[in-house]
Amino acid sequence: MAGKEKKEKDLRFKKFGTVSFTAVTKVNDFIDKLEAGQVSGTRCKKCGLAFFPPRADCHQCLTSDMEWFPVTGTGKLVTYSQLMYAPVGFNEDLPYAIAVLDYGDYKVFGRIGNVPLEELTIGMAMKTEVNRLPGGQINYVFNRP
């Protein structure tokens, strides 16, 4: 039955976070870049608009001609919250804090890494780092620069 082999589905995005709710997306390369130690967004090649989280399509230009850019340097901590309850699948992670960093051109939503809650202050500089999770899962967290 040559030529009838099923094309394998690209389910890389299943690896994102403690529990991923998405498997198939056109920005699956995000996962490979994470595995290589880089958190990345996309930029429209036509208008230059930067997107984080990364997108496959620019709504301004209606183009899908995008390029990856690395999230580098530091962003400012906009806000955060520590959760004492978690949805199904996240109980082992408790307590953990979610937060937003402002990089100027774009913002990043994610988790606080190893910085204790009492040391967080709004406006402080933090960097976004790749973080490996149990079971081969992977995400990114915010830490001191």
């Binding site: 995005f13 994102f16 976070g17 403690t18 529990v19 991923s20 709710f21 998405t22 997306t25 989280p53 906009v78 806000t79 955060y80 919250s81 959760l83 309850y85 978690a86 949805p87 199904v88 699948g89 996240f90 992670d93 953990y96 979610i98 937060a99 937003v100 939503f109 994610g110 988790r111 709004i122 995400n139």
Partner: peptide, 29 residues
């Protein structure tokens, strides 16, 4: 289980988000 899927399921839910935590971020700011 549904509560965990309250917002952007692709980019936020994998971090373990819940409704109160989002409003809590507004409260903190």
């Amino acid at each position: 289980e549904r509560m965990g899927r309250g917002a952007d399921i692709q980019w936020e839910s994998p971090f373990g988000t819940m409704m109160p935590a989002y409003y809590a971020m507004y409260a903190r700011a």
